[in-house]
Design a protein around this nucleic acid. Structure first.
Length: 655
DNA sequence: AGCACGCCGACT
DNA sequence: GTCGGCGTGCTC
C-alpha cells in the first residue's frame, strides 16, 4: 500500500511512500519519513499516485499516532494558500509545523504542564458597545461571515470582540486573535486577563522553543482555547477553530514579504471561508480593500462612534511649512515648539514622530557635491551620531565618518542633509535646554532598553519623546498632550500606490496618542502640502470622504481594489543577465485582454546587497485567474538559473 | 532550498 | 596528476 506525503520543504510536489506491514495511516496523519538522507516530519496528503518507479519508493519510518490528524479544512487551507500566493505547498506546510520537537511524544512532565480553566468576568459595556457586541455575537456559529469593527482608538473595540469571543468559547471552539506586533502588546494581554481571568496562548517569532512546542501541541489537540499571535499564528493546525479576529487589520505588518508572501488578513478570510466561521476585522482606519468590501455588501460594518472615556478626539492643526521661517538646522515650527514648551510648563508631555532613523538621511560634501552611497545598494548612507558612523539601512553596511571628503579631499565641508530623529532630539536640546528628551527606534540596543524608555515616558520622567513608527501603537501615555508630526509628506514620496491610504492611517494613529485621559490632545502636522486631500482629511477628521476620493482615484487608475496586481521581481548578481532575462520574460508574458504587463523596469532599489533587481508588474481584472496565467507563463519561459524570480501576489511594499 | 555529481582551469 | 570552481538535476 502506498500514500502520497507532503513534506515541509520548498517543494510543491507530494512524494509517494510505502506503508509498512502493521502500520495504519490515513490522510492527515503526521508521520516521520526519510527524505534526501534525513528524517523529516510530514503529513499524509492522499492516496499513492502510483506513477513512481518502485525502486525509488521508501517506507514510512513512523506514524506519530499520539497526534490527532491534520483536519481536512486545514489541508484545504494549505492547498488554497499555496495556489493563491504562488508558493510551493511544502513551503506553506512548513509554516504549519514550526517545531520539529513538538511532534515527538511528550514526556510525562510535559503532559503535566497544563493551564488554568477560564473563569469569566462579566463585561461592563456601554450602550454603544453592547449594541455592537450583540451584532457581532449573532455571527458566531457554523457560518462564514466577515464583520468590520470600525471604531477610533479608545472606543472599546477590544472589549466588544472579547464579548463575541466568549460566545465562541462557550460553544467549545478555539479563537484566534491576530495582532500586528504581539511583543509590544503588554496592554492587550492585561486587558485579556482582566476579562477572561487567564492568559491566552501566545505565538510569535521570538517565543522560546519550549513555549513553541507546548503551544503547538495545545493547538492541535484543541486544548488551546484562545491563541493570540502575529501573522504566523494563522497557519497553525487548529483542531476546531470557531472564530478569527484580525485586530488593526489595515496594518502593513500583516503582509509577509519573504518566503511565502501572504497577507494574513486576506488569508484569515480564506481560512474562515473554508471553516465556515466568522472573521472580525477591527480597525480605526480600515484598509481601502476592506472599506470597498463593506460598500459591496460583502462585509458587514459594525461602527463604534465614540471614545468611551468621553474625552474628545485630539484637535489637529496643519502647519504650513512654506510659511515658516526656520533657523539654521531647525526643523520644528514655532507653533509646535510653543506648544511643547507650554506642555512642559503644565507638567504635560510631547511626542514627536519622524519615520527616519539616525541623524541625517544623507551626507554630502559642500565643496564638490560628493554623496556617500552604499557600495552594494543603490541607497545613500545615513549619518548616525549616537553610534557615530555612516550606515546603509538596507544591507547593514557601516563605515566611519571620514575627516575629509573622499572625492575632493576638502575638510570641514561634509554636511548633514535633512533630519532623522537624532537630529530632532538635538534641536529640542538646543531650543529647550531643560527638556528631558529621549529617542526611540529600532536602533535602540535591546528590547529592555525600549521598555525602559517607554516606562519613563509613562511615568512622566520624560518631557519629550522622539521616535519612529515604533511609538505609533499600543502605548498609553497619560500625560501626553502634544503630538508633532515632523515631516507628514515623507510617506507620500516615492510613488507607492497606497501612499495616501497609508499616510492617513499612520498619522491618525500617531495623533490618537495625544490627550487620551484628562484633557483634549493637540496634534501638529508639519507639511509642505497643506492642501493635499490627506492633510485636509486629517485636519477635519473626515476619514470617509478621503476614502471615497481615494476609491475614485483607484478606480480611474485601475488599481486595487478595482484590479489585482502581481509584482514579478527578477534579481541576480550579473546586471546584463538580469536585464536580458527580464526583457525576455516580459516579451513572452501572458497576452490576455484582461491583463496588462508593465515593465520590465528597475525595481525601486535597483541594487540591493550587490544584486540587481528588475520588476515586471502585472495588472489584472479581478475576475481573472491571474495565478493560473503566471504559473503557465513561468513554466513555459523557463527562467535561467542565474536569476531569481519572486512573484508577489497583491504586493504591499514596492521595494 | 540543499546536496551530489560532473566537467574544466590552476597549481603541486 | 589533484583540488575545487559552480552549472545541473534530484529529492519518494
Amino acid at each position: 500500500m502506498f500514500v502520497d506525503i507532503l513534506l515541509p520543504n520548498h517543494l510543491n510536489q507530494a512524494f509517494t511512500y510505502r506503508v509498512p506491514e502493521g502500520l495504519r495511516v490515513g490522510v492527515g496523519d503526521y508521520v516521520l519519513v526519510p527524505f534526501a538522507g534525513r528524517m523529516l516530519p510530514a503529513v499524509v496528503w492522499g492516496e499513492g499516485s502510483g506513477d513512481v518507479a518502485s525502486n525509488k519508493i521508501k517506507p514510512i519510518a513512523e506514524a506519530l499516532t499520539h497526534l490527532p490528524p491534520m483536519p481536512a479544512g486545514m489541508r484545504e487551507f494549505v492547498e488554497r494558500a499555496a495556489r493563491y500566493t504562488l508558493s510551493p505547498r511544502g513551503a506553506v506546510l512548513k509554516m504549519c509545523l514550526p517545531s520539529f520537537a513538538a511532534l515527538h511524544v511528550p514526556t510525562a512532565r510535559e503532559r503535566a504542564a497544563s493551564f488554568a480553566p477560564v473563569c469569566y468576568t462579566p463585561p461592563s459595556l456601554t450602550d454603544a458597545q453592547a449594541v455592537a457586541s450583540d451584532t457581532l455575537k449573532s455571527t458566531v456559529g457554523a457560518r462564514f461571515s466577515v464583520s468590520v469593527l470600525d471604531g477610533v482608538t479608545g472606543s472599546g473595540k477590544t472589549e466588544v470582540y472579547f464579548d463575541a469571543m466568549a460566545g465562541a468559547l462557550a460553544a467549545g471552539k478555539q479563537v484566534l486573535v491576530l495582532l500586528p506586533e504581539i511583543a509590544l502588546s503588554v496592554q492587550w494581554l492585561s486587558r485579556f486577563e482582566a476579562r477572561f481571568g487567564t492568559r491566552p496562548h501566545i505565538w510569535h517569532s521570538s517565543i522560546s522553543p519550549a513555549q513553541r512546542k507546548h503551544t503547538w501541541r495545545a493547538i492541535v489537540r484543541g486544548e488551546a482555547q484562545v491563541v493570540v499571535g502575529a501573522r504566523s499564528a494563522l497557519f497553525l493546525p487548529y483542531a476546531n477553530v470557531g472564530m478569527v479576529v484580525v485586530d488593526e487589520e489595515h496594518e502593513a505588518t500583516f503582509k509577509q514579504d519573504d518566503g511565502v508572501m501572504y497577507h494574513a488578513r486576506d488569508m484569515a478570510v480564506m481560512k474562515a471561508h473554508i471553516e465556515k466561521i466568522p472573521v472580525v476585522l477591527a480597525s480605526a482606519t480600515p484598509s481601502l480593500e476592506t472599506w470597498h468590501n463593506v460598500q459591496q455588501k460583502k462585509y458587514q460594518l459594525i461602527s463604534l462612534p465614540k471614545r468611551y472615556t468621553g474625552v474628545e478626539l485630539p484637535q489637529v492643526q496643519l502647519v504650513d511649512m512654506r510659511q515658516e521661517t526656520l533657523g539654521r538646522g531647525d526643523f520644528l515650527a514655532k507653533s509646535l515648539m510653543d506648544s511643547v514648551v507650554q506642555a512642559m510648563a503644565d507638567g504635560k508631555q510631547a511626542l514627536l514622530f519622524l519615520n527616519r532613523r539616525g541623524y541625517a538621511p544623507l551626507m554630502l560634501c559642500q565643496h564638490c557635491g560628493h554623496r556617500f552611497e552604499c557600495k552594494s545598494c543603490s541607497a545613500w548612507l545615513v549619518q548616525h551620531k549616537h553610534a557615530p558612523r555612516l550606515s546603509c539601512h538596507h544591507c547593514g553596511h557601516a563605515e566611519m565618518v571620514p575627516k575629509a571628503c573622499p572625492a575632493c579631499g576638502s575638510e570641514e565641508k561634509l554636511q548633514a542633509v535633512g533630519p532623522g530623529i537624532e537630529r530632532i532630539a538635538e534641536e529640542i536640546a538646543r531650543r529647550i535646554p531643560d527638556a528631558r528628551v529621549a529617542v526611540l527606534s529600532s536602533d535602540n540596543e535591546s528590547h529592555d532598553e525600549v521598555q525602559q524608555v517607554l516606562a519613563a515616558m509613562q511615568n512622566g520622567e520624560l518631557d519629550v519623546l522622539i521616535g519612529t513608527q515604533l511609538i505609533a501603537k499600543g502605548h498609553h501615555f497619560p500625560k501626553l498632550r502634544v503630538v508633532g508630526v515632523v515631516d507628514a509628506d515623507l510617506g507620500l514620496e516615492g510613488g507607492d500606490p497606497r501612499a495616501v491610504e497609508r499616510t492617513y492611517q499612520v498619522l491618525h494613529q500617531i495623533g490618537g496618542r495625544a490627550g487620551r485621559e484628562e484633557e483634549r490632545g493637540l496634534v501638529f502636522i508639519q507639511t509642505y502640502a497643506p492642501t493635499h486631500p490627506v492633510m485636509k482629511a486629517l485636519a477635519a477628521g473626515e476619514r470617509d470622504a478621503l476614502m471615497e476620493l481615494e476609491l475614485k482615484m483607484r478606480k480611474v487608475a485601475h488599481m486595487p481594489p478595482f484590479s489585482r496586481l502581481a509584482n514579478v521581481l527578477i534579481d541576480g548578481t550579473d546586471e546584463r543577465t538580469v536585464l536580458t532575462e527580464a526583457r525576455r520574460l516580459a516579451s513572452v508574458a501572458p497576452n490576455h485582454p484582461k491583463l496588462r504587463v508593465l515593465g520590465p523596469a528597475p525595481a525601486p532599489l535597483y541594487r540591493l546587497k550587490n544584486r540587481f533587481r528588475v520588476r515586471i508588474l502585472l495588472q489584472a481584472d479581478r475576475a481573472l485567474d491571474m495565478q493560473h496565467l503566471v504559473v503557465a507563463w513561468l513554466e513555459e519561459a523557463k527562467p535561467a538559473r542565474a536569476v531569481h524570480i519572486k512573484v508577489d501576489v497583491d504586493p504591499y511594499h514596492f521595494m
